[in-house]
Computed example of a mutant assay.
Amino acid sequence: MRSLLLCLLLLLGPAAWAEEWRVVGDEQFAPYSFVSLDSDTPQGLDVELVRAVMDEAGLAYSLRLYPWERVKRMLDRGEVAMAFQFAGTPERMAQYELVGPIRTGSTVFMTRRALAIQDWQELEDLQPHVIGQVRGYSYAADFDQADLARDTSAQNPRQLVSMLLAGRIDIIIGDRTQLLYFVREQRAQEQVRILPRPLVEMPRYVAFAKGDTARAEQFGAALQRLKDAGKLASIYKRWE
């Protein structure tokens, strides 16, 4: 019996010997990571990217999505091996071992078309307005530290967009692709406008606990192989 088990493990390869990685991401970050109403299967661009890298590395893993605050707590407490998708801010880089980026997104300000807000040049230009942002999110170091009026009552980006459309707030901040995804979901494209000047082009990373360099290097090497071979392009294109 023992010999049979050993043969099976050899046939399955290195992943059979390794401990399964618990991988978690944000459940409210469509179209990057989300769970559809009719299925509890994780979906989205970032989900597919992470799966592709894990498969390339030959690693055994489980992937689940949770509320963002829980994702961070699970990683901080050592309950999971890896989490995604973290903004590449100095604060996050000091806190975790970040690997990537797996992609880059544009962080923008969105307002209602009916309002007279045209654009901004300095963050101080936004001081007359209350800016809605998702609680627990990090956007860019200068914005996060700026002396601005903020509404952090939104638990996720979908709720943030709903607050804007309901007139509860005048400006919201977020990933351009994601905000537009939720606007289209409510068929409200004609009601909103994105300010021309983006805040930042923000790279997105996967995160490991500080000091977990072995797993970080393992994931990073597999990610680089896929990038060098051009094998991630088809995933990006599918979610354009």
Rank of each mutant, 00 (worst) to 15 (best):
S3M: 12
S3K: 13
L8N: 11
L12Q: 14
P14L: 09
A18I: 13
E19H: 14
E20W: 07
V23E: 06
V23I: 11
V24I: 09
D26K: 03
Q28A: 09
Q28N: 08
Y32W: 07
S39G: 13
G44R: 06
L45S: 11
D46A: 15
E48L: 15
R51D: 07
M54F: 10
A57G: 12
G58C: 07
L59I: 07
L59E: 07
A60F: 06
Y61P: 07
L63G: 08
L65A: 08
L65S: 09
P67N: 09
R70G: 09
V71R: 04
K72L: 15
E79Q: 12
G88H: 00
P90L: 04
E91S: 13
M93E: 11
M93Y: 05
A94V: 09
L98S: 01
V99A: 12
P101K: 13
R103A: 08
T104M: 01
T107H: 03
F109D: 00
M110N: 05
L115S: 04
A116S: 11
L126E: 02
I131M: 01
G132R: 01
V134E: 00
R135E: 10
R135A: 09
G136M: 09
S138R: 02
Y139N: 00
Y139R: 00
A140P: 02
A141N: 11
D144Q: 04
Q145G: 03
A146Q: 10
L148S: 12
L148T: 12
A149E: 10
P157F: 01
P157Q: 01
R158Q: 10
V161Q: 01
V161I: 03
M163R: 12
L164Q: 05
G167D: 03
G167A: 05
R168H: 00
R168E: 02
I169T: 05
I169P: 03
Y181G: 08
E185G: 06
Q186A: 11
V192I: 08
R193D: 03
R197S: 15
R197V: 11
L199T: 00
L199W: 01
P203E: 01
P203Y: 01
K210F: 10
D212E: 15
D212R: 15
T213N: 13
Q218E: 10
G220L: 08
Q224L: 12
R225C: 07
L226D: 07
L226P: 07
G230I: 00
L232R: 06
A233M: 06
I235S: 02
